[in-house]
Amino acid sequence: MWDYTDKVKDHFLNPRNTGELEGANAIGETGSLNCGDALKLFLKVNENERIVDATFMTFGCASAVASSSALTEIIKGMTLDDAAKLTNDDISDYLGGLPKAKMHCSVMGQSALKKAIADYRGVQILEKPGQIVCECFDVTDLEIIDAVKANNLESTDDVTNYLKAGGGCGQCLERIEEVIESVKAKG
């Protein structure tokens, strides 16, 4: 059954700001066809580094579309500095919450936004630091450590829900477990 809030349903059924944005001067892309969801975010940023317009194109489930739609609504009018502070929880909260297994949809929004901001500022996003743990979804140990700390994740299921890591072939589940344990051990 569809376990979505009315707000998620609304943003899925009536997505705001879809399509390419003419005159966009910042673009952030994340996800892929293979993963099952992907988001392309278009921003128009003015000379004061304020986001004057934002649109998206998303391939994915209802919560991926809703998260993308919510993201564009939240960031319109923000300065890039403020937008850079946005977290995936802000997106999820805006929608009245997402089912646990769909949290990665909000993470995808945050990631596309980071990339768009980097694109505007001409900053190269370097090769991801850390070691790849999940080959299926290209997730590193450092990303897992960050997500575990930021969201108090306790199990491999939690990590999969947030980062997708471990949700494909499942071969890295033991390694994810070790990473969680190491974070816990350090307190």
Binding site: W2, F12, L13, G36, G60, C61, A62, V65, K102
Partner: peptide, 22 residues
């Protein structure tokens, strides 16, 4: 993506299923 399709079909009373991840 399959879940999106199913949800929109569901709005019109159509019950189907997908092998999709989501």
């Amino acid at each position: 993506e399959g879940e999106s399709i199913l949800l929109l079909l569901d709005r019109q009373g159509i019950c189907a299923s997908s092998g999709s991840a989501c």
